[in-house]
Design a protein around this nucleic acid. Structure first.
Length: 427
RNA sequence: GGAGAGGUGGCAGAGUGGUCGAAUGCGCGGGUUUGCUAAACCCGUGAGCCCGUAAGGGCUCCGCAGGUUCAAAUCCUGUCCUCUCCGCCA
């Protein structure tokens, strides 16, 4: 979330930002409530001061009568405090709700626009778009999976419902290969590899900007508990520093995590999301970084470059998209997506996403750093980026590497991790 | 899952109703001494927020959330976490 003082001092900028991002937040109401809250807060503090003074004086009273009078006085103040506190709590509740709805400020260079139609393609990968032999029509991954017995969508639906699937045969080995391939690049780049919990406390979800319950939630929550299935390891990795203060020398912290990701994807269906493209569960290697404010922009470029290296290495064509203000998630200051070429749909589809969340997540998480020799603490900056989301990466690999004879060739970059070079129809 | 013990400042650890934001030691910062370093000695050393140009003053925080009380680190309830023992298990 944004700093309350910042909102009060930059009302017009915050309102314009909400408008650019297409978020209907009542900033004026926020200002009104926060102003009132501050007043009430001062009132409570003054009363507390009074009450503290009375309490302290009781220990020094000489006569029982004097003592009884003071006690009565203290009791009266306490009642008064309870009253003010009640209005304060009500203000706080409404304020918090509005404050959570106000998105992060956007990077001044982020393209302004209402939705993904305004996203800007800013770069392309090293690999050219594929050219197919005369008369050959590339299949989509669902058809390929069927022919090569790589994915069982029907079985997934029977067991867990639509949107679930079993990977089978070489697809399983490719999943592990993609993870290892990405991980080895990240470890070389100085990232600490982790496997994270697949569940997290709702507090942590909220801290990273995910809303566990409610109509439009993407999150599966566990009944009779305060746990939810995570939608990304961003949640667990971000939670690592919740309510922590680290020394500035420890920053930047580059982490990556393998986890399963679970998403309800309520109401999302249709041709564009067929097969593996939009599913309820997939595996992902996620990058995450905590850093000093002055490091975050460079680190964001670093994460983007790693994503590009990974897909250039796989020799899959892609474009880099600078996300428009209206299409940014609440915590993002700036976001780049990699969209890989997917022959089955004859178009680009999102495969990675990297965001610089500046101090927006950190403020909610209460993740701070301390500079040695200086007084006080400050909020860290957080960044996240997809290294490889297996379902979509696998989709892109299958479709891009299909051959005229119906087989799929394994990308060179993955061959060190599997003991086959071509996937052929079983018999 | 059952039984017990415990969660206090960067760390260790005292503190069982008021004089406790918290002894003491270590660590850290500054200083004295010193050819240099070390030792010794002296002083200082938590965070968030509010008022104030500042000096300074105030509020909150002893895992977390409530409660009792004029007053809570200290008493009560709930909850989370850690450790030990038992059971179970991969």
């Amino acid at each position: 979330m944004l700093d309350r003082k910042f909102i009060l001092e930059n009302v017009e900028a915050v309102k314009l930002n909400c408008q650019n991002r297409n978020v209907p937040a009542d900033v004026d109401r926020f200002v009104e409530l926060e102003t009132a809250r501050r007043e009430q807060q001062r009132e409570v503090e003054a009363l507390n001061q009074e009450s503290n003074a009375v309490s302290k004086s009781i220990g020094k009273c000489k006569t029982p009568e004097e003592k009884a009078a003071k006690m009565e006085e203290g009791r009266a103040i306490r009642e008064k405090i309870a009253g003010v506190r009640q209005t304060l709590d009500a203000l706080e509740k409404e304020l918090d709700q509005i404050q959570r709805g106000i998105p992060n400020m956007a990077h001044p260079d982020a393209p302004i626009g209402d939705d993904d139609g305004s996203n800007l393609a800013v770069a392309y990968g090293k690999t050219p778009l594929p050219t197919w032999p005369e008369g050959f029509k590339p299949l989509d991954h669902v058809e390929l999976a069927e022919k090569l017995d790589l994915i069982d969508f029907e079985g997934g639906a029977r067991v867990a419902g639509a949107g679930f699937y079993f990977l089978k045969n070489e697809a399983v080995l490719l999943e592990l290969a993609l993870e290892q391939y990405a991980l080895s690049k990240l470890v070389r780049a100085g990232f600490t590899p982790t496997t994270t919990p697949d569940l997290a406390k709702n507090d942590v979800l909220q801290g990273t900007g995910y809303i566990p319950r409610g109509n439009e939630t993407q999150i599966y929550s566990i009944e009779n508990s305060d746990l939810s299935l995570i939608a990304t390891a961003e949640i667990t990795l971000g939670g690592l520093l919740a309510n922590q203060t680290v020394d500035a020398e420890q920053l930047p912290m580059r982490l990556c995590g393998i986890s399963h990701c679970f998403r309800t994807e309520a109401g999302a269906a249709g041709r564009a999301s067929r097969g593996l493209y939009r599913v309820h569960q997939f595996s992902k290697v996620e990058m995450f970084a905590f850093c000093l404010p002055e490091q975050s922009e460079a680190l964001h470029q670093e994460l983007l470059q790693l994503e590009r290296d990974i897909f250039d290495g796989l020799e899959i064509p892609y474009r880099v998209v600078d996300t428009a203000t209206g299409d940014l998630g609440g915590p993002a200051y700036r976001k780049y997506d990699l969209e890989a070429w997917m022959p089955g749909r004859g178009g680009y589809g999102e495969v990675t996403s990297t965001s610089n969340c500046t101090d927006y997540q950190a403020r909610r998480l209460n993740a701070r750093y301390r500079v040695k020799g200086e007084k006080g603490t400050n909020f860290v900056h957080t960044l996240n980026g997809t290294a490889v989301a297996i379902s979509r990466a696998l989709l892109a690999v299958m479709e891009m590497y299909q051959q005229e004879d119906g087989s799929i060739v394994v990308p060179k970059a993955l061959r060190p991790y599997v003991d086959f070079e071509v996937i052929r129809p079983k018999n």
